[in-house]
Design a protein around this nucleic acid. Structure first.
Lengths: 249, 249
DNA sequence: ACATTTGATGCGGTTTTGTGCAGGAATTTA
DNA sequence: TAAATTCCTGCACAAAACCGCATCAAATGT
């Protein structure tokens, strides 16, 4: 069998089944695994397939891009994400909501981190999947089209079964008197459940949302352990929260 | 034998078999391999064949096996998706797997359709979310990074709680004797559960995967109610499946 | 008619390519 | 952490390609 012929066969198999194993290909074509691996390498160099440990994957399958343009206050969110990422340690279970801030957090995770992330937000989970070593648990239920998260009793029940070490909430409004508030009933219910299921609650928000108010109450600030903004912890805007016993980063 | 004559013969052989070897040609025509090689070189320079180490290939060969678009057999999948979409009626509960064929199905859904779709595949759910009027239920559990679907006992349990009207399976291999087979244990388990939870099981596949085999058994042919390919239902390739009592579209 | 040119072919030696194998590094899995 | 795969690197060997050259035959020119 000619080399080109063989490579064509391999490419065909990859496109057909989305995945091939070096070992089975080597048996099918009756050549050594070394040869198969060299073929896969060449095809990968040409961009026709994606080579992975043990075989290869079709390119069309893992080809989803997530442009990060158009995100409001992106740079500030990157700062927040950095601070938040530093709280996560190997082996932790981390609950997260959705939102662009949390997506930035997902991108800021150090590559060697080994932890388990739980979320009901589809864009966030997509971002987690790019990470090489973390485990991802997706909360299932009815999908809310505008917020792109799963909501409902089943989602709540799944969250309640979890005892997470950390909970990162991307929040929409916070003030000393009313605590954290939001404008979507389903989202509020979910966030409440997450707060209950985590040992430590970390709120992420850009400074703009500090001391603002939304219609629906989620929880008092007494439930919050840590507050992260893009500001320095010494910023006077944050002093009241410090005084209320919240760790400010 | 004249040079022109020889080259005509070679060209004929290439077009006939899609492949020739310098060594065998040299024997057939009783000339040295050098001469054959020079002939191949000339034909290749004229663009009539593709010269490779050891012989030559016909041009149609590389056309067949190196499709330019990213999603393999995209047009065929659109045809399949159209046929599948016609089975869905308002108010139905529809279970679906993942895969590019199912994504095409999601895109082919008529805009005014009001039904509920259930899936554990993240790319598929993303596609469903673009639809204006359908409800989407996401199966939650641990996310498998390469297949981009949720897998595990919790996912199975969620599927078991559902009584769906229809189940669309994008399948990787099917044959009369072994039924439907696949190459990923978690995926197999999920598909099994989906088959059990649906009143009607519809398999979607491009014709190329008909009569092929993968390592892990999902279920027998008898569990399938409908088989959809891009071919006409009268195609002889599909006759055995019709004879086995499967509706073929 | 004879010499010269031109093109095609085969041959020997060298270079390149393709393949398998061994051993150690790296990665995955239990 | 240990065991098992898989990967990578260098090496060896065979097959194929390449290069230059000699030969031969047909075509061409004088």
């Amino acid at each position: 069998m000619l080399k080109k012929e063989r490579q064509a066969y391999i490419l065909h198999q990859v496109n057909l089944h989305n995945k091939v194993l070096s070992s089975s290909l080597s048996q099918e074509i009756s050549v050594s695994e070394d040869t198969i691996r060299r073929d896969l390498q060449e095809l990968a160099d040409e961009g026709k397939i994606i080579k992975v440990h043990g075989g290869a994957l079709s390119h069309s399958f893992s080809q989803v891009y997530y442009p990060s343009n158009n995100v409001y206050s992106l740079d500030n969110k990157k700062i927040i994400a950095q601070k938040a990422a530093s709280l996560i340690e190997d082996g932790m279970f981390v609950l997260t909501t959705g939102g662009t801030t949390i997506i930035e957090l997902a991108r800021a995770l150090p590559p060697q981190l080994k932890a388990t992330f739980i979320s009901g937000s589809i864009p966030v989970v997509l971002e987690y999947m790019h990470h090489p070593s973390i485990d991802v648990i997706l909360i299932g239920d009815k999908v809310s089209k505008n917020s792109k998260i799963t909501v409902g009793a089943e989602a709540i029940a799944q969250i309640k079964r979890i005892r997470a070490d950390l909970c990162f909430l991307g929040i929409n409004a916070i003030d000393i008197k009313n605590g954290i508030t939001d404008n979507d009933w389903d989202v509020v219910t979910l966030k409440k459940a997450m707060i209950e299921s985590a040992q430590k609650v970390v709120c992420l928000t850009i400074a703009e949302k500090i001391n603002s108010l939304q219609p629906i109450h989620i929880d008092d600030i007494s439930k919050i352990h840590t507050l992260i903004t893009e500001l320095s912890p010494d910023d006077p805007l944050l002093k009241p929260y410090k005084d209320a016993g919240i760790e400010v980063l």
